[in-house]
Amino acid sequence: MNDIGMNQWLAAACLLLTVAVYACARWLYARHRAIWFAPLLFAPVVLVGIVLATGIPYPVYMADARWLMWMLGPTTVAFAIPIHDQRAVIRRNPVTIAAGVVAGVVLGVGSSWLLARAFHLPPELAHSLLPRSVSTPFAVTATDAFGGSRELTSLFVVVTGVFGMMTGELVLRVLPMRSRMARGAMLGAASHGAGTAKARELGEEEGVVASLTMTLAGITLVLVAPLLAGWLG
């Protein structure tokens, strides 16, 4: 078999392997609620291990697997449903929700920008870090405006999620706050989907506020990214 034909088979196998490892991670995590089985951590680590061990070039891996990434587009649109479902919460506490969204976006982008400068990170990394605290479909769109790389941004979003999952509870215990809304907003704004999952474990209101804050922060960041990119350079 020639190289091109071989690579086509390999690319299709990589797509199947990605789905299989993901399904396996979900199954494992459902049985043992241990953090290292969390699909967010387990699936990328196992796949990176396999790709490194077999020496499959990334372009071959991505040739078919990019169709999975393509699905992030329709997923952006799907977020209209939870916003619509939770409109009563927005109507009841519009200022609180808006405050959480604005604080989350400003602090998320601001802290990444300041820290990246303080640590003298190269521009490619610094730009890709800016949208790391919002959900991936929004982060990869915003990173285009910042001049970052979609791949690096996705990785940083995942690391942010894993970090938020590990430290969320500790921070909740340390911080003196009483309202359920603050707990939910904190988790949704700082660590998107992973934080929202944690918030759902705390209670229904925390979960709803986390999900709203995460989604609205993502939309807001995509809308203001072109303006911010001009300022932050």
Binding site: T18, V19, V21, Y22, P39, L40, A43, P44, L47, V48, V51, Y58, Y61, M62, A65, R66, L68, M69, W70, M71, L72, P74, T75, V77, A78, F79, A80, I81, P82, S135, T136, P137, V140, R150, E151, L152, T153, S154, L155, V157, V158, G193
Partner: peptide, 19 residues
């Protein structure tokens, strides 16, 4: 919509493998 949001992680594993 719920299926897309629930399985979202699967969609962004490929770019993460780019590490």
């Amino acid at each position: 919509a719920e299926w897309l949001m629930a399985e979202m992680l699967l969609f962004f594993i490929p770019p993460v493998v780019a590490v």
